[in-house]
Simulated assay, not measured.
Amino acid sequence: MGNIETLEELYKRKFDWLPDNLRNEIGHFNIFRLEPFTGEKAKPIPYKRRDYYKIMLVIGNSKVHYADKIFEVKKQALSFSNPQIPYKWEHLDNIREGVYCIFNQHFFNQFGNLSQYEVFQPNGNHIFELTDEQVNKLTTIYERMFEEINSDYIHKYDALRNLVFELLHFATKMQPSSTFDKHPINASQRISTLFLELLERQFPIEEAHSKVNFRSASDFASQLNVHVNHLNRSVKEATDKTTSQIIAERVLQEAKILLKHSKWNISEISYALGFTEVTHFNNFFKKHLQQSPSQFRNV
């Protein structure tokens, strides 16, 4: 897995040009149609993380490698990509048409926290198969984006942010509400949210000498200045999972990504994920997947 792709690299790879204002703007937003890059003109998309967000409407059959999972788009779908999770698309020649917008975190500075939406969370849903009626509704939103970005309206970027939120809410309404959405926010949910944010801050791991510092419930409790029993109760109440279970799931997800898409050896991956011994990592991996890291890598 290569280094994280920047907006500058995206423009050079796909378009061989850079917007004049790309480096001058604090926040960046743009929107494109897919037609020029499909069929025979489709270019391979490398599996890697990007430092920008992307929301894409795709018409046609294709496959998406998203983190450690593979999704098949049977007919048409709306996809959400974020800087935390690597991805790539296959069979672009089967995509008939589409449209996508890209933006960075700075574009939403003081306008909201994108990470609160499940579509941008590591364990959330990122691909949504669509009906024809849903495609028509989404197409209208994207056409409004084209209209706004090409206008002279002084507040057009505020209007574009609102349209991005329309896409976010459209997808969020398509998936079951999480436990956090079912009840008013209480103390347990606030602590759980802080725990999940602290956990996610350790990922993605891009360099072999980087290391996960918080691996146990007590590590997180100390950092959050709460008793470990209180943290465990709060997380269980808010998520219906134990603290250790959530930590293990996230470490396992990152382990699978690194094993499949990096050139690091098992020892380097083990160290980066916070294991003191390679044997501990091997035992952890076998416990959850019933195969060794080497076996998983070579499948």
Rank of each mutant, 00 (worst) to 15 (best):
D93N: 14
G27T: 12
F285C: 00
I266A: 00
A171G: 00
V235L: 10
L194N: 15
Q189V: 06
N125C: 03
C101Q: 09
T179D: 04
R161E: 06
H288P: 01
P83S: 12
L168D: 04
Q84C: 03
Y271W: 06
I31R: 06
H91C: 02
C101A: 08
S79P: 01
Q202F: 08
N104I: 11
D20R: 14
Q110P: 08
R23G: 02
E97W: 09
K12C: 00
L231C: 09
E133Y: 10
E133I: 13
Y271D: 07
Y142N: 12
N136L: 12
H209M: 10
D158M: 09
F281W: 11
F37G: 15
D240E: 08
G2H: 12
W17E: 08
N283W: 03
I59K: 11
A77T: 04
H28R: 12
F111N: 13
I95T: 01
T139V: 10
I185K: 07
A248E: 15
R201Q: 14
E237Q: 11
T239Q: 06
V299P: 01
K137Q: 10
R190M: 04
F29M: 09
Q175F: 03
H288E: 05
Y11V: 15
S210E: 03
V228T: 05
R215E: 00
K182P: 04
F296S: 13
D16G: 02
N3Q: 14
K256S: 01
E9C: 05
G2D: 04
H106C: 12
I4S: 03
L7C: 04
M1K: 14
H91R: 09
T172G: 15
I26D: 15
R49W: 08
F281R: 13
I85A: 05
V119R: 05
E237R: 14
T6I: 14
N113K: 08
N150T: 14
H280I: 11
K88Y: 10
P44H: 03
F111L: 01
A217N: 03
H126D: 04
E35F: 06
S292E: 10
E207F: 09
I70Y: 06
I59R: 13
F275R: 09
G98F: 02
K75I: 05
K182Q: 12
V58R: 02
H155E: 05
I247N: 06
N283G: 11
E72L: 02
L18I: 15
D68T: 06
S79H: 13
I31K: 07
N24T: 14
N265D: 11
M145R: 02
D152T: 13
H230Q: 05
V135Q: 02
E143A: 00
L198W: 00
I269D: 01
Y11P: 04
P86K: 07
R161A: 05
R161H: 02
V212H: 03
I154N: 13
T179I: 07
I26L: 14
G274L: 08
F170Y: 00
N232Y: 06
L78T: 15
K48I: 07
S292N: 08
S294T: 15
L7E: 05
L130N: 00
F146I: 12
E147G: 13
I247H: 00
N150E: 10
G60K: 08
S294L: 15
V235S: 09
H227A: 07
L22H: 06
E207Q: 15
R96W: 01
Q84G: 04
Q110R: 04
R250N: 02
N213V: 14
T193Q: 08
I102Q: 07
H28Y: 11
G98Q: 11
M56V: 13
E5N: 11
V164R: 08
